[in-house]
Amino acid sequence: MTRVKVNGTEREVDVDPSTPLLWVLREQLELVGTKFGCGIAQCGACTVRLNGRAIRSCVTPLSAADGQEIQTIEGLAPGEGQRHALQAAWIAHQVPQCGYCQSGQLMSAAALLASNPDPSDDEIDAAMQGNICRCGMYGRIKDAIKTAAKNGGASAPAAKETIDG
């Protein structure tokens, strides 16, 4: 039995502890916002935060998360009906196209802003270099990170607007 704290909630899972965290999140914990892209830590689609740090869950065994805190895309918004500043900026800049890599992009960006609230272009590049976007929205991602940083990063959640379709 492995205990993990996921998005603020204690969870127990009974899985081979060598199983990559990605598959435990998706299959046992049914948190499917975290995606599979390559399986070898090359694309970043599976990025989640382990004790605040961005990690590639496809190569992180469950055992490494034992007793630790994990945040996934489902836990990024500060509360029900709210959006993280990055999520609001992502919408404002119309970042996603297919959207598949965006959970990972957002989690990498969230880890960056948490440790560096006002990153330079080079610092953004360095933090985001592990995340591939085959739709090629890098320019918009970078602009959105700067907007979110300007809006206070993680500390200033934006209210959720009613524009869902």
Partner: peptide, 11 residues
């Protein structure tokens, strides 16, 4: 704004 985008930023 694209209607599908909000669902693509929250998983």
């Amino acid at each position: 704004e694209r209607h599908d985008i909000p669902s693509k930023v929250d998983g």
